[in-house]
């Protein structure tokens, strides 16, 4: 379990990092927190000629709120999202999602951009990003562009970045004061990748009906998926446990993950419906609590 030979670069600026990406493209890999990449290197599942270590780029480590947008730099450590007051205020769901990423030691090293770029379908931050309609900011030799999270995750551990681009930030819309959020995950052990997980953000009108609902699900397909079938079934309907349970069952059709060592496809279908149901119920309760001022 020793990595193969590679050239190591540690640029100080985003521009230098992109210059290296432009030069080495597919033969290079970006090292951020290393929580996935280092084991892959040690097991020789990854074999880059060049490793571009972006940990020294201070520009990537900022959290800024501009109006109704919270921008989190790609190099921000995941654990900061658990403790940062601005994050808690702007996007409460993040603080509920992040504790499920690995263990605290992983989150102290693991970065926000690293997790998004790695694009594991069972990972928490990609699931949160699609739920919250985040945009991923990438930068290449010709400048920056923004990619909607739901377009960013293209397939199994593949993202929409070009070989000469670097993920530099992610932008989350600030949550509406009326919304409630929740995250429910089931894993074999605490800190493992989700067998299935669901994030939900809900708004409920004074008549008790859903006025807005977004649900993201991890661990059930090649990418995190939005549970649009469930959202559509519920918006405009009364936010009752019965309605939610009935609608949640529709997610089962979106489960494409089959049998593996830890779960069966059949189990994942049942589990997906269960976590969606529980996340929506909890998000509704959270919305009610917030509107009650508690």
């Amino acid at each position: 379990m020793k990595p193969p030979k590679f050239m190591y670069c540690d640029p100080d600026t985003v521009e230098d990092a992109i210059a290296l990406k432009s030069r080495y493209g597919h033969d290079s890999l970006v090292l951020a927190g290393g929580q996935s990449l280092m084991p892959m290197l040690n097991m020789r599942l990854a074999n880059p000629d060049v490793l571009i270590d972006i940990n020294g780029i201070s520009d990537l480590k900022r959290i800024t709120r501009t109006g109704e947008v919270l921008e989190i730099g790609a190099g921000v450590r995941q654990s900061e999202l658990e403790t940062d007051a601005a994050v808690a205020d702007a996007v409460p769901l993040l603080g509920k999602v992040v504790p499920y990423i690995g263990h605290i030691e992983n989150r102290h090293r693991g970065t926000v951009g690293g997790s998004l770029a790695h694009a594991d379908a069972a990972a928490e931050l990609p699931c949160a990003a699609i739920t919250l309609d985040a945009t991923v900011v990438v930068q290449g030799p010709s400048g920056r562009r923004e990619i909607a999270a739901r377009d960013f995750f293209e397939g199994f551990m593949t993202n929409a970045c070009a070989p000469d681009e670097l993920v530099v930030a992610v932008r989350f819309p600030v949550a509406s004061a009326a919304s409630g959020s929740a995250f429910v995950e089931v894993a074999r052990r605490e800190g493992d990748f989700a067998l299935a997980a669901a994030a939900a953000v809900a708004e409920v009108g004074t008549d008790g009906r859903f006025t807005a609902l977004s649900i993201g699900v991890a661990g059930i397909a090649a990418t995190p998926v939005r549970a649009t079938v469930v959202e559509e079934a519920l918006v405009g309907q009364a936010a009752t446990a019965e309605n939610i349970a009935a609608a949640a069952k529709r997610i089962a059709d979106r489960v494409t993950a089959g049998d593996d060592l830890h779960a069966t496809g059949t189990y994942r279908k049942h589990l997906a419906a269960t976590v969606v149901k529980r996340a929506v119920v909890a998000a509704v309760a959270d919305a009610q609590n917030r509107s009650n001022g508690s």
Binding site: V186, R188, L195, H262, A263, T264, T266, Y267, H270, L271
Partner: peptide, 11 residues
């Protein structure tokens, strides 16, 4: 005994 086995039995 895995979670999938327990849920399969219940279902």
């Amino acid at each position: 005994v895995k979670p999938a086995t327990i849920v399969a039995t219940v279902q």
